[in-house]
Simulated scan of single mutants.
Amino acid sequence: MMNSLLLWIHIVAGILWVGGLFFIIWGVYPATRVLPVLRQKQFLLQLMKWSHKGFSIAGITVIITGFLMGIGGTVNRWEMLFTTYYGKWWITSLVIGLCTLVWGTFIGYRAFIRMLTREIIWKMAEKGYPRLLYFSIVKVVFISSIEGLGFFILILLMVII
């Protein structure tokens, strides 16, 4: 019963974490493109500041519930981490999940906020010179894509196990 509840929380938190970020990337951001440049900046800055804590909590919840399901289930002894197939995949998933969360929380998010608060690139774009803004967005997308790669690997590991 407890493992079923942990699994349910794990899945819901995963949907909120991964799905929420993907919705912002593929749904909200493209919709903001119809706004004037400085409005885009203001909206995205507020959205990121508002949603960051929720995404971080969802990611932490995914990792904690995954950890608890592992130690409460198949990986119930230390040596099982390194001697069983499942233990090796479980520790790999834990490490990748932690790295993905840390990357998104401390590197991707901060890069996005830095880009959104660089006034000069937004003012230049507003005056008809968007090149520096586009370059900055591509740079942030590249940095943030590492978090997406972590999500992809985690989902792949779940399907393999």
Rank of each mutant, 00 (worst) to 15 (best):
R131W: 02
K41A: 11
K49Q: 09
G128Y: 14
G66I: 07
T100I: 02
I15E: 14
W89I: 14
P130G: 03
L45K: 06
K88Y: 01
V12M: 09
F43G: 04
I121F: 03
I9R: 01
I63L: 15
F43H: 03
K53C: 11
S56A: 12
F67D: 01
S144H: 08
I161V: 14
Y109P: 00
A13N: 15
V140S: 04
M1L: 03
V34L: 04
G73R: 11
Y109K: 05
F43N: 00
F142D: 13
I120Y: 05
R131E: 03
L7F: 15
V18A: 10
F67Q: 00
S4I: 06
L35A: 08
G108P: 02
W78Y: 11
V159K: 07
L133K: 09
M80I: 15
K123Q: 09
I91E: 07
L21D: 10
S145Y: 10
L7D: 00
I71T: 04
G150E: 08
I91G: 12
T83H: 06
Q46S: 06
L21W: 05
I24M: 09
G66K: 01
I9P: 05
S51C: 09
L154E: 09
W78A: 14
S145K: 04
T105K: 01
W89A: 13
I161M: 13
L154K: 02
L47N: 07
M69N: 03
I113D: 03
H10A: 01
L116R: 05
V18K: 04
Y86R: 07
F82E: 03
I11H: 10
G14I: 15
Q42E: 14
R39C: 04
P130T: 05
A13W: 14
E147A: 11
I121E: 10
W17V: 10
W122Q: 00
M158F: 15
S93Y: 12
G150A: 04
W90R: 04
I57H: 08
F112K: 05
L35C: 08
T61M: 11
V95Q: 07
W90L: 14
I153Y: 13
Q42Y: 00
G104A: 08
G20R: 02
T84V: 10
V28G: 07
G73T: 13
G150R: 07
Q42C: 08
L94C: 10
L132K: 14
S93M: 13
R131C: 02
C99W: 15
V18L: 08
M1H: 10
L21G: 15
M1K: 13
V28Y: 12
L5M: 05
S56N: 09
G20T: 14
S4N: 11
I153N: 07
W122H: 02
F142S: 11
E126V: 08
A125P: 05
F67V: 00
K53V: 15
V141K: 08
L132P: 06
C99P: 09
G70S: 15
M69P: 00
T74H: 12
L101C: 04
G19V: 00
L7Y: 11
A125K: 01
E79P: 04
F151D: 04
L98A: 09
V140R: 00
L35E: 04
R77P: 06
I96Q: 09
T92E: 10
L81C: 06
S145F: 14
I63N: 08
I161K: 05
R77Y: 00
G27R: 00
I57Y: 10
S51R: 08
T83N: 13
V62N: 01
F22L: 15
